[in-house]
């Protein structure tokens, strides 16, 4: 993975994020779920994908699947503690998450993780991808998963949410 975060829309002065912020991300999901239910939480994820990440979508429109892969390489290079391989080929942009940095840090901190934490990668990713002409399919979860960004129409049907593993108790 490259250490240059040039594909990222928002840049910080330090090369990697502070892992304790994963605690706040997880707590935010739990708070929204308590107030609005799982459907409300899924709506929040879609909104953040459409809104906050709109600059990423614009880059994907211009740069295609290569830009998708470039973004995720830069993204995971800036996150602490993960083990992630990003490839781009005939199958699309494929992200092989061997160790999810967020799940690893939450587990190390003995935090109760929202059971559907891993769905956020689908709902945010799909909201970012769809306006650029792509779709995402995710298999696995709970610390390890495989995410494929494909051209829309290259796969039939919707994401099977059952293919995204729920978080297992510690």
């Amino acid at each position: 993975m490259t250490n240059a975060p040039s594909a990222l829309p928002y840049l910080d002065s330090k090369p990697r994020g502070a892992a304790d912020f994963y605690f706040a991300i997880n707590a935010t999901f739990r708070f929204i779920r308590r107030r609005f239910g799982l459907a409300g939480l899924q709506g929040y994820w879609a909104d953040i994908g459409h809104g906050y990440f709109a600059p990423v979508t614009e880059r994907w429109k211009r740069g295609g699947l290569a830009a998708v892969a470039e973004y995720w390489r830069a993204f995971f290079a800036s996150e602490p503690g993960g083990d992630v391989q990003v490839d781009c080929g005939d199958e699309g942009a494929v992200i092989d998450v061997r160790t999810c940095p967020a799940i690893a840090h939450l587990r190390a901190g003995s935090r109760e993780i929202d059971p559907d934490f891993c769905q956020h990668c689908y709902f945010i990713g799909e909201a970012m991808a769809a306006p650029a002409g792509f779709t995402v399919r995710i298999e696995g979860g709970d610390g390890k998963c495989r995410q494929r960004y494909l051209k829309r129409g290259a796969t039939k049907g919707d994401q099977d949410l059952g293919a995204i593993r729920r978080i297992s108790p510690c």
């Binding site: 990222l8 928002y10 994020g17 994963y22 706040a24 935010t28 809104g51 990668c121 945010i124």
Partner: peptide, 14 residues
């Protein structure tokens, strides 16, 4: 995925 690198950005958006 939501990351910690740009956490303050999506925190403020939230």
């Amino acid at each position: 995925m939501l990351g910690c690198y740009d956490f303050c950005g999506h925190y403020e958006w939230t």
